[in-house]
Simulated assay, not measured.
Amino acid sequence: MTGTGTLHIERTYRASAEAVFDAWTSEEVMRRWWQAERTWETASAEVDLRVGGAVRVVMRDPAKDEEYGGGGIYTEIERPTRLAFTWLWDRESRRTLIEIDFEEIDGETTVRFTHSGLWDEEAVRSHRRGWGNVLDNLGQVMGWTIGS
């Protein structure tokens, strides 16, 4: 991994850790919620859920008819408490790392999302918005949102 910027985001959902973990690892479910903007769609999602297997997502902005894809290789899979995978955007040359921890307490699951190896603080800021929207979409689409 190159870069020193690290992004941390946390969200809590009204769902079991198993359900939230599965939403991050099911191609069909990922296509429903993995978008960086609410008006976008997920054109494709591919998962080979094993250490060394690949994950890939392509988001599409229908207003601009543009696609934004990225993917990586799973480095850790501990169902239902942890996922880690490398990440490389199609238009970038810098490989980064995404780590997601799932902690269930009393039927609610807190997701701790970390994206490390970002190249600078501007990259951290832009990724915070996009990943924040992705995590918000997950809660809204699946009906797991807590609070307003």
Rank of each mutant, 00 (worst) to 15 (best):
G3M: 02
G3E: 03
G3I: 00
G3H: 00
G3V: 01
L7K: 00
H8E: 07
E10M: 11
E10N: 08
E10P: 06
R11A: 01
A15H: 06
A17P: 05
E18P: 00
A19G: 09
D22L: 15
D22N: 12
A23I: 07
E27R: 11
E27T: 14
V29C: 08
M30N: 06
M30I: 09
M30A: 12
R32A: 06
W33F: 04
W33N: 02
W34E: 04
A36H: 11
E37M: 13
R38A: 14
W40L: 11
T42C: 04
A43W: 12
A43L: 13
A43K: 15
S44H: 08
A45C: 01
A45T: 04
A45N: 01
V51M: 06
G52F: 00
G53K: 10
G53R: 09
G53C: 03
V55C: 04
V55E: 04
V57Q: 00
R60H: 10
P62G: 15
K64V: 15
G70L: 02
G70K: 02
G71P: 03
Y74M: 03
T75W: 00
E76K: 14
R79E: 11
R79A: 11
P80D: 14
L83E: 11
L83R: 01
A84M: 13
L88E: 04
L88V: 05
W89G: 05
E92W: 10
E92R: 07
E99N: 15
D101K: 08
F102M: 09
E103S: 15
E103M: 09
I105P: 10
D106S: 07
G107N: 08
E108Q: 12
T109K: 01
T110K: 05
F113K: 14
H115G: 09
L118Q: 10
W119Q: 12
W119L: 10
E122I: 09
R125V: 02
S126L: 15
H127Q: 04
R128S: 12
R128A: 05
R129M: 13
R129T: 12
W131F: 01
L135Q: 04
D136Q: 15
D136R: 07
L138V: 04
V141E: 07
M142I: 14
M142H: 08
I146D: 09
S148H: 15
S148K: 14
